[in-house]
Every structure is written in structure tokens, then in C-alpha cells.
């Protein structure tokens, strides 16, 4: 057996200083690289429906957002009414949303305002597709960061067929279509 070598005080100080500088450099680097969170790029999203079914949460953290400044406030809203709707009213048989998460409110003839009930929204994107096809594209999907648990490998991102999920800095976690929505989100 090899006898243990005795360390001098100078060796000990060298090792301690190296550990101290290394630790400080790691801490600064960690502070400088921002924390990242998952978000959906609305331009890439194809509303495949997987956001509703693939999130690890019981009800998806993906919700529909509404850009009021882009909305046409249409009576015949492609995001609210089914393509084969029998009437332009709030009848359940006419509503496109499978959970009735969109509220329709009369403003003045012929304008209607549409709001999203976040508790009911499951993030399927059905309304987003209808709005994008026939309207101005004011409805779109976003990950709500007060609900998201931010898994390191997001289950929806893995299943997303259009590569619409991306990591964004936690300090700026939404990809909004209009600046006017920042207050709401």
C-alpha cells in the first residue's frame, strides 16, 4: 500500500481557490442564461388537436387566446359556429366548441364579442382552425404558464406534428399576436 502523501498548505489553498473560482463562474453563467419555458408559435400551429390530449395535466395547460384587436366581431363567426350550424345563435347544436368554452355577447347590430372561458377550454384548437379559415385568425393557442408544469421534455412538443412548440425565455413567455393582449394574459 502506498503511503498517503502529505499536502502542503499551499496545495490546499490552490485547490480551494480553483473550487471557488469555478463555482463563481458556474453561478454567473447560470444566472446569465435565462430560464426557458415551452410556448406555441401561432404561425406554425396546425390545430391538430393533440394539445388537448397529450398534456400531462388532466386538463391541458394549452388554452385559446383571443386577439380582440384582430377580431372582426362577426355574426357568422367561423370560430364559434359549426360549419353546418342551423342558426346564428347560442344554441348548443350550433356551437363548434366541444366544451362550450366560447361566450358570445351582442354588442350592436351586427357585431358580437367572443370571449374564452379558460376553465372550460381544453386547448383542442377547433375554434382556432375555424377562425383562421374563415375569419381574421384572431383566435390562437398558447401555453398558459400559471398552469403549465414546464416538463423538461414537453409531452405535447414531442407529439406536435408541425414543430410549433419551442422554448422561449421565461421572462417573455407568450408569443402574442398583438401587443394589446399583454394586459389580458
Amino acid at each position: 500500500m502506498k503511503p498517503l502523501q502529505k499536502q502542503s498548505r499551499r496545495d490546499f489553498l490552490r485547490i480551494a481557490a480553483a473550487a471557488l473560482f469555478g463555482g463563481a463562474a458556474w453561478w454567473i453563467a447560470r444566472r446569465r442564461s435565462p430560464r426557458m419555458v415551452w410556448q406555441i408559435d401561432p404561425e406554425k400551429c396546425t390545430q391538430c388537436g393533440r394539445c388537448a390530449t397529450h398534456c400531462v395535466l388532466p386538463v391541458s395547460a394549452v388554452k385559446c387566446f383571443h386577439s380582440y384587436s384582430m377580431c372582426g366581431y362577426c355574426d357568422l363567426c367561423g370560430g364559434y359556429l359549426r360549419p353546418d350550424a342551423h342558426g346564428r345563435n347560442t344554441g348548443a347544436e350550433n356551437q363548434l366548441c366541444p366544451t362550450a368554452a366560447i361566450r358570445r355577447k351582442f354588442i350592436e347590430d351586427p357585431y358580437y364579442q367572443y370571449t374564452i372561458d379558460e376553465k372550460l377550454c381544453i386547448g383542442c384548437g377547433k375554434c382556432v382552425k375555424g377562425c383562421g379559415l374563415f375569419g381574421n385568425g384572431s383566435l390562437y393557442l398558447q401555453v398558459k404558464h400559471d398552469l403549465c408544469v414546464n416538463c423538461s421534455e414537453c409531452a405535447i412538443a414531442r407529439a406536435c406534428p408541425s414543430d410549433a412548440f419551442k422554448l422561449v425565455p421565461a421572462s417573455d413567455p407568450y408569443l402574442l399576436k398583438s401587443n394589446q393582449e399583454e394586459r389580458i394574459s
Partner: peptide
Amino acid sequence: RAEPGKNYIYS
């Protein structure tokens, strides 16, 4: 995970 059913797909 199950694929979304037809109720979730706009067609």
C-alpha cells in the same frame, strides 16, 4: 395517449 377524436377536429 389517445389521438384526438373527431369531436376535436375541425372539418
